[in-house]
């Protein structure tokens, strides 16, 4: 992941104005290999990249944010755990059917204090993505998550969930084993958790598959993550009868962190480094850590009863309608 930092290879379409500068830097590097000192020139060009990047990122459209949220290099749950959580021990299995590699969890310490972390797991290569089913969990993934949340509850430790999934997996086995029941039960049981619970949408918040581990007392979103009831492509192909109208659907459905903060669906936006989380994963992890720590500390002042009441208040008021 780190070697791809500032790389030219994985630039998104809207970052293409950076390409000539990257090329120029490569040329200069080749020249300096022959003994000429180009350090100053290279430094200047790198500064230019920074400035230009800042400019580009100042005005991203929703569909561009979607692309960032799905970026192949975007830090995954296990990347963040490695950067944030000390003494992490991954815990596997739902004690019923199996273990789901698309949804991971375990115990460790955040700032020296015990926490339980669960999250959807994607990957940075096709091989990794296939092994993780692209972060699309099966029922056993949701059941493992619930089992682990109860482990945290019995130990009276806070729970952090990291959400990054296109959605729960739509497959034959998933239906046979009760995908709906697994998610529904998680929703009901998350409402009853007696410990502080913070959710961070780190990438794709894909519908019920995201919500299935996402009912925190606080829900935070990374600046370039998305959270939606349906993917822009799905929305476009169904409602607009044309999948190529995804950019329009992305805008209309209000799926960015900024939109969701306005609707009070989330509590806070966590800033990302210029160029997105993958451009500086450790800075992104640092930002998440600071924000999550703050919220856990606030929530830790509440009693178990108050935590349940706090969560209930949050979700009870969801909905916009007219009542005459």
């Amino acid at each position: 992941m780190a070697e791809a930092k500032n790389g030219i290879k994985n630039l998104l379409e809207f970052e293409k104005p950076l390409v000539p500068i990257f090329k120029k830097i490569e040329e200069l590097k080749a020249v300096s290999a022959h003994g000429m000192d180009m350090t100053e020139e290279i430094k200047m060009l790198q500064k230019r990249i920074e400035t230009l990047r800042r400019e580009i990122f100042q005005n991203l459209s929703p569909i561009q944010i979607v692309q960032l949220a799905r970026h192949i290099l975007r830090p995954t749950t296990l990347d963040y755990i490695n950067m944030m959580v000390e003494d992490f021990v991954e815990l596997r299995g739902d004690r019923n059917y199996g273990d789901d590699p698309a949804l991971v969890g375990g115990v460790g310490r955040l700032n020296g204090k015990p926490v339980l972390v669960i999250g959807h797991q994607k990957g940075h290569t096709t091989k990794e993505l296939l092994a993780r089913n692209f972060g699309m969990a099966n029922p056993e993934g949701y059941r493992k998550a619930l089992r682990l949340m109860r482990v945290a509850q019995r130990a009276n430790r806070p729970i952090i969930s990291l959400v990054d999934t296109p959605g729960a997996y739509p497959g034959i086995g998933a239906e046979e084993r009760g995908q709906s029941e697994a998610i529904a039960k998680n929703l009901r049981e998350m409402a009853a958790l007696t410990v502080p619970f913070v959710t961070v949408i780190t990438g794709e918040g894909g519908s019920g598959g995201a919500l299935g581990i996402g009912m925190g007392n606080r829900v935070l979103m990374l600046q370039y993550s998305i959270y939606s009831v349906i993917s822009p492509e799905g929305c476009a192909s169904i409602l607009f009868r044309d999948a190529t109208r995804a950019p329009e659907a992305a805008t209309a459905s209000k799926i960015t962190a900024k939109d969701l903060l306005e609707f009070d669906v989330i509590d806070e936006i966590i800033k990302e480094p210029v160029g997105g989380a993958h451009n500086d994963p450790s800075a992104s992890a640092q930002n998440i850590q600071v924000s999550v720590t703050k919220h856990i500390e606030e929530l830790s002042k509440l009693s178990p009863r108050e935590l349940i009441a706090d969560r209930y208040r949050k979700y009870r008021k969801m909905g916009i309608f007219i009542e005459s």
């Binding site: 529904a184 929703l187 409402a191 519908s207 019920g208 919500l211 009912m215 959270y227 939606s228 009831v229 459905s253 209000k254 799926i255 969701l260 609707f263 669906v265 979700y315 969801m318 909905g319 916009i320």
Partner: peptide, 9 residues
């Protein structure tokens, strides 16, 4: 949009 998802919660 997202508000329909929140009805599940």
């Amino acid at each position: 949009g997202i508000m329909s998802l929140m009805q599940m919660a």
